[in-house]
Nucleic acid binder design. Structure first.
Lengths: 195, 195
DNA sequence: ACTGTAAAGTTAACATCGTTAACTGAAAAT
DNA sequence: ATTTTCAGTTAACGATGTTAACTTTACAGT
């Protein structure tokens, strides 16, 4: 059929759109194929499995997130301000792209084949962005590991997004208020101890 | 067949064991039925669906967690010590019961029917335990909402467990070291601001 | 121009899944 | 003794991811 050799692109496009519209489980190979106008088996010409198809979307999501964080870094030089905005940026990315966030970080456990280790580099780069920002306003403090702190901060941000997406956060809290609280606590978490 | 009217119990038992052994997706109705020694359809005599079967396990998990936290409360009266141990207890519960934790908090998004709202009470009680512990060592501080702080702390603990279970945390960190870091940051998060 | 080959796509099928309708057998109630 | 009720089964439906085998298309080499 005449598809100008861009069937792969079309598949990714429709997979993405179906993912956003109906979620991972409902985005079946047959639905994707139908949306594209080919047979389910054709998808296997370009992707090893459903998992590996969605891994490509994970990479798209990682890139988006990375770009968003890099933009923050480039625009805001003040360490604490930058850190705050990074946190806010990460939270907003998760809350505004729930389906992307889901396949990127949420439904790996058994649901989806593990994202190949060698592709974690972009995720790792995002962690490094946080570590650098943190290091900037805790410079000169020994026994302080930026990567470790960044991991803990990431845990907080990730947990907040997860609970919010799962609607486990009390609805009496508005979303922006919750975001600000999490950001404030992130900053507080990094303050030097007062004995 | 002679099953002393405890088929329901047997189903729950095998479902739990299969869940722990192979995870939610692989624990199929047919496998459960096979393990019990009945037909898949018999399960529907006692549970409306696969979801509602596993919701019963969610409740078992919630109860376990609740008991574990209540034990901590009853044993350790000192506010900060108690709070620390609550955090540690929650983290350990999650890390030591990954499959339970998964169905309790992790794979709701689309994967599993939403856990009925009216059954959130036990989860809510667990949040309240944290809120009370937090309130105890921030007493007298106005514009400080214990439930809000408890939610943020919960986010941190939940995120740490999620990332660890998804093997996203750098392996160079030992698990106990990571747990202690998270606990320390939880405490730090609640310190009064120093301007 | 003819033929051989490789790529691109399709058809048909497999095994598995959650779930339902219709049936059977036994025990309890009238 | 007959009817009703309960507990469980058989057989099937529609949907899923995936594979093997086939067809069609395009393009080389001679």
């Amino acid at each position: 059929m005449a598809r100008n050799g861009d069937l792969r692109r079309q598949i990714l496009e429709q997979a993405r759109s179906l993912l956003l519209a109906e979620g991972y489980a409902q985005a079946s190979m047959r639905k994707i194929a139908n949306a594209v106008g080919c047979t389910p088996t054709s998808i296997y010409l370009y992707f090893d499995s459903k998992d590996s198809l969605f891994h490509s979307l994970v990479e798209e999501g990682m890139t988006r997130l990375h770009e968003q964080l890099e933009t923050v870094v480039s625009l805001f030089p003040d360490p604490e301000d930058r850190f705050r905005r990074l946190c806010r940026g990460y939270l907003e990315f998760g809350l505004e792209n729930p389906e992307f966030y889901e396949i990127m970080f949420l439904l790996h456990p058994e649901q989806m084949m593990r994202y190949p280790t060698d592709k974690y580099r972009r995720a790792r780069r995002n962690l490094q962005i946080f570590a650098d920002a943190i290091a900037a306003f805790r410079r000169g403090d020994p026994n302080f590991d930026p990567i470790l702190s960044a991991t803990v901060v990431w845990s907080l941000l990730h947990g907040a997004i997860s609970l919010h997406l799962a609607k486990r956060v009390d609805v009496s809290l508005s979303t922006p208020a919750f975001v600000e609280q999490v950001v404030e606590h992130s900053v507080q978490m990094l303050q030097p101890h007062n004995p």
